[in-house]
């Protein structure tokens, strides 16, 4: 897992609410047995028409999509299926961070296990982010801080904090997944099994 400590990137905005994992990666791409090669499948039906041609009207096909490592999405991002392929596809497409006002449980758990930072921000911050596509944002994982730049209309630069489970934070900072930690608990697991068997 690639560590994520700080990130300075523009944001790509898809304002739509309830973006489900079928949109992030349609089911027909799930017959794979690999976790690689899924970047092309990310948002496939939004990026390509039924002839396989790029849709000019999709921000995911615009020049910003290539550079932006932060995806800002509408409310309830990642709802639906538990497919971890959605996280793999987003990361292979180039995203390291997803920001929304609400992120679905299974998607968030999957994201953090792969080094994709999924964060929820308050409604005001969310609204601001949605209204400022391509904003240059800075993220500090250790501090749990998101820096927003100054913008027109008198918006001054400001920082907002985001919550991140301390355990997930360490995994992200150090680039380790949690399986190693789990394996190290083998004695406690065995003890639990023995106690239950005896009961």
């Amino acid at each position: 897992m690639k560590p994520l400590r700080t990130l300075d990137s523009c944001s790509l905005v898809i304002a739509q609410d309830n973006i489900d994992t079928d949109q992030i990666i349609p089911a027909r791409f799930l017959t794979t047995t690999s976790r690689e090669g899924l970047g092309e499948a990310a948002f496939a039906d939004w990026r390509f028409d039924d002839q396989g041609e790029s849709r000019a009207d999709s921000p995911l096909n615009g020049p910003a999509a290539k550079d932006c490592e932060i995806l800002v999405a509408g409310e309830n991002f990642g709802c639906g299926s538990s497919r971890e392929h959605a996280v793999w596809a987003l990361m292979q497409f180039g995203f390291r961070v997803v920001i929304s006002s609400r992120i679905a449980d299974i998607f968030r758990a999957n994201a953090l296990k792969n080094g994709l930072l999924a964060i929820e921000v308050d409604r005001d911050t969310h609204r601001w982010l949605l209204a400022h596509p391509a904003a240059r944002l800075t993220i500090d994982v250790a501090l749990g801080r998101l820096d927003l730049p100054a913008a027109g209309g008198g918006d001054e630069a400001r920082s907002v904090s985001f919550e991140l489970d301390p355990f997930a934070r360490i995994c992200l900072l150090e680039g380790v997944d949690s399986l190693g930690y789990l394996l190290a608990q083998a004695d406690d697991i065995a003890k639990f099994e023995q106690t239950r068997e005896a009961a």
Binding site: S82, E84, Y181, L182
Partner: peptide, 21 residues
């Protein structure tokens, strides 16, 4: 429901790391 990483966790350890909902 769980993701594939967690499927691996359960296969290897029969356990999951979970925050209480």
């Amino acid at each position: 429901g769980i993701g594939t990483s967690e499927v691996g966790h359960v296969l290897a350890t029969q356990c999951l790391l979970q925050r209480k909902p």
